[in-house]
Design a binder for these strands. Structure first.
Length: 476
RNA sequence: GUCCCCAUCGUCUAGCGGCCUAGGACAUCGGCCUCUCACGCCGAAAACGGGGGUUCGAGUCCCCCUGGGGACGCCA
């Protein structure tokens, strides 16, 4: 039985790196038909907020990373943590330390100057508690063995070892009686039955410290898997500048959750030459041991490309629902039933041209805008005397057209072009300008089919009624 | 500073001693398709950081250097 967990601290949104950690834990659990738990590491009361908890939960819901059971608040378990600390104290595996913050700072400076990794010198380790000064609340520290070292068998990092001279007697329980992260993680992972800890490799050195706590408690340590961190496009630590945004920011930028998941999965993990990997395949193929050891850089272009793919694959009605709020916001009014139907009918041509839903909204607007349309400068230029002449030419044919299908319309357009000894584009572009207000759109005969005969003729009349600029006059 | 980790095209990666004249994807640049823009298709350019070993043979194993990254809190 596999039990994994994602354990974010609620001090902000679910950033993209955290999302990847969550995804890997989720995939690993699902692959093994195991359990994926969520634990909120909210022991730092000063920095934890309910808003952050909501943001993280919503981010995971958006990515469809469903957790099993209720999220566990670490803070609510502090009694249990303290109990374990006292147990260690009673067993002589931990001790009280009465150092003041100032003393600690001095020690730290001295250790740094001496090039030592051991920041605390263990001065209260074997000191008689009777010497305890008055008025100072002690912390509880773990006794880390003097000699030897600790070895971690990490399924990603391999065998990693560190000497005990690198570890100092870490604090388990703070002076105010609250547990430190180091203690809380170990106790919670144990109590929750976590079998595999999959997290960022910024925790690798913590694993050694935690190993000492497991050893002192006589507990089995879960299997460790420390995955490389995500880097920014410039190779430095991921910052807001290059993508360390909350996942909701990606949603707002028009990304689809399946694209984000697919992209995140391929960062540091691969399955041969596969690039497009759906949920089912991901679950089937994923294994933490295949995660690479090198840090990966975040690349917005590749995410965008993947997003374009998933938009093209998405169901039309889903996309309509997705962009409706944005469209109405842009329009300043609700989209009526007829317009909505137009969107649905035009979606297949629309979605092929968008790499995010923001673009999709932008490109869909002409379908739902009310007459008369305003023209972009380029569209206005196309509708010069010559362009309008072409529209005047074709309008009667369209008005009489009985087969109002894209094929029927195209045939009519070709006939007009041929009669005028012009290329099809000479007809199509003015139509496009008049019907969409732009020089770029889906295939214009498809657009006309979707718009319907009445709307099409109406929009053409609007264009003819507007004062046409002299040929070649308008600039873009 | 100390400890740990990493190192293939610009980026994500395949490669697990001979299948590598190093493959795929994104981005870039050509071309085709074409009513515009996309999509799609075809093609080009583009990498094993350096130096030593081991071996008949090294991108693949070992060492050193260099270059990145991470950790060193009564934060998590």
């Amino acid at each position: 039985m596999v039990v994994t967990r994602f354990a974010p601290s609620p001090t902000g949104f679910l950033h993209i790196g955290g999302a990847r950690t969550a995804l890997f834990n989720w995939l690993f659990a699902r692959h093994h038909q195991g359990t994926f738990l969520l634990r909120i590491e909210d022991t730092d009361r000063k920095r934890s907020t309910d808003e952050a908890v909501d943001a993280i939960l919503n981010g995971m819901r958006w990515l469809d990373l469903t957790w099993d059971g209720e999220p566990i608040s670490q803070f609510t378990r502090s009694g249990r943590h303290a109990e374990i600390a006292r147990q260690l104290l009673d067993e002589g595996k931990a001790y009280r330390c009465y150092c003041t913050p100032e003393e600690l700072a001095e020690m730290r400076d001295a250790a740094r100057a001496a090039g030592s990794a051991r920041l605390y010198d263990g001065r209260w380790r074997d000191r008689d508690p009777k010497e305890a000064p008055d008025g100072i609340d002690p912390v509880i520290r773990l006794k880390v063995p003097e000699g030897g070292g600790t070895v971690i068998q990490d399924i990603i990092q391999g065998e990693v070892r560190v000497g005990h001279d690198q570890l100092d007697d870490m604090i388990l329980l703070r002076a105010d009686g609250t547990p430190t992260y180091m203690l809380a993680v170990v106790v919670d992972d144990h109590d929750m039955g976590i079998t595999h800890v999959i997290r960022g490799d910024d925790h690798l050195t913590n694993a050694f410290r935690q190993a000492r706590i497991y050893a002192a408690l006589g507990w089995n340590m879960p299997v460790m898997a420390h995955m490389p961190l995500l880097h920014g496009s410039d190779g430095t630590k991921l910052s807001k500048r290059h993508g360390a945004l909350g996942v909701e920011a990606y949603r707002d930028m028009g990304f689809l959750p399946e694209a984000v998941n697919n992209y995140l999965l391929r960062l540091g993990w691969s399955h041969g030459d596969k690039e497009i990997i759906d949920r089912g395949q991901a679950i089937e193929w994923f294994d933490v041991k295949d995660v690479g050891k090198a840090a990966a850089r975040f690349d917005m272009d590749k995410l965008t490309s993947l997003n374009g793919h998933y938009i093209r694959e998405a169901e039309d009605d889903r996309l309509v629902e997705l962009i409706l709020p944005g469209l109405e916001n842009e329009l300043g009014e609700t989209v009526g039933e007829a317009a909505r139907q137009r969107l649905l009918n035009g979606m297949s041509g629309l979605k092929e041209r968008a790499k995010n839903t923001l673009e999709l909204i932008e490109n869909s607007l002409f379908y739902v805008r009310k007459r008369p349309l305003s023209l972009t400068p380029k569209a206005a230029k196309i509708l010069d005397a010559e362009g309008c002449g072409m529209i005047e030419h074709i309008r009667p044919n369209l008005a009489q057209l009985e087969d109002w299908s894209r094929e029927g319309i195209e045939t009519a357009a070709r006939e007009v072009a041929e009669a005028a000894d012009a290329k099809l584009g000479a007809v199509a572009q003015p139509l496009r300008a008049a019907l969409t207000g732009s020089n770029v759109s889906p295939g214009i005969f498809e657009v006309m089919e979707v718009l319907g005969q009445d709307e099409t003729l109406g929009r053409l009349d609007d264009a003819l009624a507007a004062p046409a600029p002299p040929t070649g006059a308008a600039q873009d």
